Amino acid sequence: MASVPVYCLCRLPYDVTRFMIECDGCQDWFHGSCVGVEEEAAAEIDLYHCPQCAVLRGPSVMKRRRAPPKPAPGDADAGRPVRTGSAQFV
């Protein structure tokens, strides 16, 4: 009889109804609920390290957020909407 592969800290087989995240260190899969990662927050993770790999490789790395563009020096209208019919708009 073939054995079913198990994953995560809980050592359970894959369950399509539960969110899972792959560790970029050991390539094992973990249930988000078992390692404290919410599905919505996972999109912001650049490199995920499971609890065991975090000891060896350091913590997970989050994606860098881009800052909004800075206005040009002396631009008095910076941050204000462009009015229709103005020289900027045309």
Rank of each mutant, 00 (worst) to 15 (best):
M1E: 13
A2P: 15
P5F: 05
Y7M: 03
Y7V: 04
C8P: 15
L9K: 08
C10P: 12
R11P: 06
L12P: 08
L12E: 12
L12S: 09
P13G: 03
P13M: 05
P13W: 05
P13N: 03
V16I: 09
V16K: 03
V16Y: 07
R18Y: 14
R18L: 14
R18S: 01
F19P: 03
F19G: 01
F19N: 02
F19C: 00
F19I: 01
I21Y: 10
I21F: 10
C23S: 06
D24S: 11
G25M: 08
Q27A: 10
D28F: 10
W29H: 11
F30V: 08
F30P: 01
H31T: 01
H31Q: 10
H31F: 13
H31E: 09
S33R: 04
C34M: 07
V35I: 11
V35G: 11
V35M: 06
G36Y: 01
G36N: 14
V37G: 01
E38Y: 09
E38A: 14
E39Y: 06
E40D: 08
A41V: 06
A42K: 02
A43P: 02
E44D: 10
E44H: 09
I45E: 00
D46K: 11
D46W: 04
L47H: 12
L47D: 02
L47F: 13
Y48E: 00
Y48W: 07
Y48K: 01
H49L: 04
C50G: 13
C50E: 12
C50L: 08
C53N: 00
C53R: 00
V55W: 02
R57C: 06
R57E: 08
R57D: 02
P59V: 10
P59F: 00
V61E: 07
M62N: 04
K63A: 03
R64M: 10
R65Y: 05
R66V: 03
R66K: 07
R66N: 04
A67Y: 15
P68K: 13
P68F: 11
P69E: 01
K70E: 13
K70Y: 13
P71S: 03
A72K: 11
A72V: 14
P73V: 07
P73N: 01
P73W: 15
P73Q: 04
D75W: 14
D77M: 14
G79K: 05
V82A: 05
T84D: 13
T84F: 12
G85A: 14
S86T: 15
S86R: 07
S86P: 12
Q88F: 13
V90L: 09
